[in-house]
């Protein structure tokens, strides 16, 4: 079959539709970026999980860090002394940034208790001081590539006073942008 098995609408439809997607409205997640196990424990009060998350992130750092052919290229993106030579186990060596922190995310139940299990990922700091982490794994609808994509992490405060609006949209029309 070359077509979708279903084609559900969630909000656009006037008729209620049954969905198979899981309802996440009753749980929340807690996510943090930590530079050390100690910082993690101070925030979460959960030293076992913090230690495991750190260890897993460190283990994943080689495989998921961006790869560079030489030290200079790596240091250009991540700064002096922030890169190390690594090997992928098949005798291919390359350079990658040192892990400078780790992410920990946990699902929280309604009463605020962390559920079993966690996700962790290594974090890297680029030469501009911005935090990055590996993108979600390739596969499925996305083809695999060499090395892993890095995504920026917005670690700055998330509110800002707006001083101006309508700086985008002057080329638009009611007929739309088309394409």
């Amino acid at each position: 079959m070359k077509r979708s098995r279903t084609a559900a609408l969630l909000l656009m439809s006037t008729a209620p539709l049954l969905l198979t997607a899981c309802d996440r409205s009753e749980s929340a997640s807690r996510e943090g970026l930590y530079t050390s196990v100690e910082a993690c424990v101070a925030q979460t009060n959960d030293s076992a999980t913090c230690r495991q998350a750190f260890a897993k992130a460190q283990q994943d750092a080689t495989a998921s860090a961006p790869r560079f052919a030489n030290r200079e290229a790596c240091e250009a993106s991540y700064g002096k002394e922030q890169c190390a030579e690594r090997s992928d186990g098949a005798n291919h060596s390359f350079f990658g940034p040192l892990m400078t922190g780790f992410f920990l995310s946990q699902m929280m139940s309604r009463n605020g208790v962390a559920a079993n299990g966690f996700n962790s990922a290594p974090a890297f700091r680029d030469s501009n001081g911005g935090w990055q982490r590996p993108a979600a794994g390739a596969g499925g609808v996305y083809r695999g590539g060499t090395g892993t994509a890095m995504v920026p992490v917005n670690a700055t405060p998330n509110r800002a006073v707006t001083v101006s609006r309508s700086g985008f949209g002057s080329s638009g029309s009611s007929r739309g942008i088309g394409g």
Binding site: R159, A160, V161, V163
Partner: peptide
């Protein structure tokens, strides 16, 4: 959000109608 409603803060970040910085 409408494209026309996107705002910008003094330090050059983009905001929504609640002054939240858009991720």
């Amino acid at each position: 959000l409408a494209i026309e409603d996107i705002g910008v803060s003094a330090d050059g970040r983009f905001t929504d109608l609640d002054d939240q910085v858009i991720g």
